[in-house]
Nucleic acid binder design. Structure first.
Length: 469
RNA sequence: GUCCCCAUCGUCUAGCCCGGCCUAGGACACCUCCCUUUCACGGAGGAGACAGGGGUUCGAAUCCCCUUGGGGACGCCA
């Protein structure tokens, strides 16, 4: 059997972190099989809340995450005719009926149900009532004539067997009064028509699966396999939704996270493969299976994501990192970048990348390479350049001016010799240099920096510090 | 309220289905030390959990029940 999955977001906002994980799992599961398919369906039947911006944000988010879908995205709205046809068929077969209840009546039923401790809201008023009694001028909705007795069972690939009494489920609306299909109908018809074999979605849809099962039965169609994955919770333990401040994936991109880090993090949040933590996408595709998805909700932990991001930054290609930070530096310091910026960043990247956990941090830490002289000095750095520091710097400058070899190692040897001659530790000499060269007290190795900057720029920056305010 | 689901270190989890190998393993975070020109990286240690109570069993983190706690769903939204 060919595996066919789908990601079916509603375009009412950005692609948030929970949706991203759902998409990832669907994608991974489909890609795990040689001929598996992963489709994208935009659930835009709610015309009032759906926007093209949101659709674009979903495309962008998925693309950035590296989750490619097969074929063209499907618009659920555009399939309304098929949805309607299914409802009409059910109506013709006597498996659905018209209901003329007003919103007020429905509200009263809901209140009564609550008060009596029932979950089932609609009381079936029009289920067997003669349509001849229909009030004039009222457009009816179409409801499914769902079974009143017995139970509905789903064998969920993650949750196991879950059973609910049919008495708990009321007759769901299939077609609204204006003739448009509801989500419940649209999902079932679309999943069937698209040949979806595995519905992998958040477990907030678990109860929908029962109603959808009733629909599949009524329509005489085979059900797909269901896999309801636990929701991602915020640090407070409650569902992480757009309404509760969950961020879109682009926010993580802007904050300097790498897509592979987010992918790895999201993968491990609720799924495991023994003790493995760092998992490449290739391995993930090979290993991923629904049987290893946990049943309990997980809390989103930004610190762990950050750690993972640091790992992937260290592993990332230097050219890619330079491109990423040049873009940021360009906007942070318009027109102020040195013409050697790119070359220096590339040369100094090895020392830079292991000191940053996010691209934004990397970019900030790298700015001293990219900017022209004179560089800004932090307060702490200025303190390194007191009378003692300045004196050492001046002495070292003359040594540096005549240094034979301008390389990382040679420079360090020179500085060490200079320090020891004066009975000092290397650090005493290195710190003022660091301040002069980077404007900071924290940076990669100062000798590496001198090497990257070159003699002229190094001496120039030292002079700036010596003659500065 | 009703229905459904969940429950191992602070967090993510392994182990659970097929009881003994568990004096419960890993990762992040935290603490100590080492490396070291700063900060990181890296390395070595440390502290840290089977929610509670009943069963079943020679033996339970693992099976059963109850309690408690948490979550989700109850729309002519998706």
């Amino acid at each position: 059997m060919t595996v066919v999955t789908r990601f079916a977001p509603s375009p009412t906002g950005y692609l948030h972190i929970g949706g991203a994980r759902t998409a990832l799992y669907n994608w991974l599961f489909a890609r795990h099989f040689p001929d598996g398919k992963f489709y994208l369906r935009i659930e835009d039947t709610d015309r009032k809340r759906s926007t093209q911006d949101a659709v674009d944000a979903i495309f962008d988010g998925l693309t950035w995450l590296g989750l490619d879908w097969d074929g063209d995205p499907i618009s659920q709205f555009e399939r309304a005719d098929q949805h309607r046809a299914a409802a009409e068929r059910l109506l013709a077969e006597g498996k659905a009926y018209k209901c003329y209840c007003s919103p007020e009546e429905l509200a009263a039923m809901r209140d009564a149900a609550r008060k009596e401790g029932r979950q089932r809201m609609y009381d079936g008023t029009w289920r067997d009532r003669d349509p001849a009694e229909a009030p004039a001028g009222v457009d009816p909705v179409i409801r499914l004539k769902a079974p009143l007795e017995g139970e509905t069972v789903i064998d969920d690939l993650v949750q196991g067997q879950v059973t609910v009494a049919n008495a708990q489920l009321d007759d769901m609306v299939l077609l609204r009064a204006d003739g448009t299909p509801t989500y419940m109908l649209a999902v079932v018809v679309d999943d069937h028509d698209m040949g979806i074999t595995h519905v992998i979605r958040g477990d907030d849809h678990l109860t929908n699966a029962f109603r959808q099962t009733q629909l599949y039965l009524a329509l005489g169609w085979d059900r797909p396999q269901f896999a309801h994955i636990p929701l991602i919770h915020g640090p407070d333990g409650a569902k992480m939704s757009k309404r509760h401040g969950a961020l879109g994936v682009e926010a993580y991109r802007d904050d300097g996270f790498l897509p592979e880090a987010l992918r790895n993090y999201l993968l491990r949040l609720g799924w495991s493969h023994g003790d493995d933590e760092i998992i490449s996408t290739e391995q993930a595709i090979e290993w991923f299976g629904l049987e290893n998805v946990g049943k309990s909700a997980a809390r989103f932990d930004l610190v762990k994501l950050t750690n993972l991001n640091g790992h992937y930054i260290r592993e990332a290609d230097n050219h890619r990192l330079v491109d990423l930070i040049m873009a940021r530096l360009d906007t942070a310091y318009p027109g102020k970048l040195a013409k050697e910026a790119r070359d220096r960043l590339f040369k100094g990247m090895a020392g830079l990348k292991e000191r940053a956990k996010t691209i934004s941090e990397l970019s900030e830490n790298a700015s001293f390479y990219a900017l022209d002289r004179p560089i800004q000095m932090t307060e702490k750095a200025s303190q390194q350049l007191g009378s003692e520091g300045t004196g050492l710097l001046r002495e070292l400058r003359s040594v540096l001016e005549t240094a034979d070899t301008w390389s990382d190692e040679a420079l360090m040897a020179t500085a060490r010799e200079f320090a020891e001659t004066g009975g000092r530790k290397l650090g005493a000499v290195a710190q003022p240099v660091r301040a002069a060269l980077t404007g900071s007290t924290v940076s990669p190795s100062v000798f590496e920096i001198m090497d990257v900057l070159g003699r002229e720029e190094t001496l120039g920056r030292i002079d700036d510090a010596l003659t500065g305010p």
